[in-house]
Amino acid sequence: MQIDLRTVSIKPLRNTFDHLARRFGDKPASRYQEGSYDIQADANLQYRPTWEPEHELHDPGRTRIVMADWYAFKDPRQFYYGTYTLTRARQQESAESNFDFVDSRCLLGQLAEEDRQLALDVLMPLRHAAWGANMNNTGICADGYGTLITQPCMFAAMDNLGVAQYLTRVGLALGDTDALVAGREAWMNDDAWQPLRRLVENTLVTRDWFELLVAQNFVSDGLLYPLVYEQFVDTKLNGRGGAGVSMMCAFMTEWHGEMRKWSDAVIKVAAKESDANRALLSEWTRTWRDRCAEALAPVADRAFGDEAAAILDTVTQSFNDRAAKLGLDL
């Protein structure tokens, strides 16, 4: 039957689902709200997880952070699958044209041999660090409580994999598969990279998922991305004919800028909840910051030579300022 619907204006019985009306009042809900709030099972869970019989399948007790409402962690980007994927697809398209542009204009040819080697030395081992970050975020998504905080971690995990894959393409563009082999060799055996690898492996056995979120997404990314992508790629290399590398890494800089908004929101909300949370977050941040700064020192040495200490110090200081603004005492 063909119906002409232009004349029909029917009044809905209700605007949204009750669980959203209870939170936000009876008004139309956004797709972010519909797809995220309260959708994880939280009552009458059936069986004991054989992989962790001490807790229920979904259990807020897997972290020492305590929240009255785990749906307080609104993502400022309001990412659900659709908006997340569309955003990344747009970024991917621009990354693709960046890679094409760099290739077609032979931009990498402007880089001196020693700087090309330096770029590979600094960036290639980070493929593996990004894979570590991917595993951490995937694990947080599995262990966390409440979709508002678990789904951004799943997205972050896929982003971490994307970063590792963009770095792989950078390596192939700057060198060849040999460049990837050398990067892996450095990650496994070069003294300069061992502190960072040790740190990443330590995070892989960190069992409190909120601590892991702090260590990975707040502290580690918060130091590594500014140091490597802002200071090294966009500033140092860019100033030495490395605009091509900078273009190929544009996703990473942009991504970190976006992720900061989210991780800041998470820390702020958790810290504001209680003094106990704030103390715990401060302690975690302090501990991981010190370990991370120490692990990045030899990487910074390789990247910046004599200026390493000063640059790492600037990055750390600005991270400290950021943490203080979020209510942490470092």
Binding site: R48, T50, W51, E52, P53, E54
Partner: peptide, 11 residues
């Protein structure tokens, strides 16, 4: 008989 990472007391 259930395969579990650690034993538990079923409720």
């Amino acid at each position: 008989s259930v395969q579990s990472i650690r034993p538990f007391e079923p409720v």
